[in-house]
């Protein structure tokens, strides 16, 4: 078995990215931490948005992190799955809406 590209333990080392570029890394984490604080949106709403986006960007680290975060912010399984459906619907819609472009082109080049 070869070494996998994604290693679960690497998530715990996320903070280490500051090793090669401290200034930008620190700025990123400071911004990141502020983003997830309670604001106009609750921490739970933000965790659910992050969970949906994690599926869209297909990041296994993010999926693990925001599944746990969603549970710890009080979301239930139905809410979490609905959030993922929202992400999936947007992805599907984003493909399908281009069907109009296909139709336009068909009409443009057809008699």
């Amino acid at each position: 078995m070869g070494k996998p590209y994604y290693i679960e333990e690497d998530l715990l080392k996320f903070g280490d990215i500051t090793e090669f570029q401290p200034e930008l890394g620190k700025k990123f984490f400071s911004y990141y931490n502020d983003v997830f604080k309670e604001g106009a949106l609750t921490e739970r709403e933000k965790a659910l948005i992050a969970l949906a986006v994690s599926h869209t960007v297909q990041c296994p680290y993010c999926i693990d992190a925001y599944t746990t975060a969603s549970l710890e912010k009080g979301a239930d399984e139905e809410q979490m799955m609905e959030a993922i459906h929202v992400a999936a619907a947007i992805r599907a819609g984003a493909s399908l809406v281009h069907g109009v472009q296909m139709m336009n082109k068909v009409k443009e080049i057809s008699m």
């Binding site: 921490e43 549970l71 710890e72 912010k73 009080g74």
Partner: peptide, 17 residues
Amino acid sequence: NPSGAYLPPSQESLKKD
């Protein structure tokens, strides 16, 4: 109490739910 290996959410927000 959590049904697994995670910490509980905020008491106040969960109470409302």
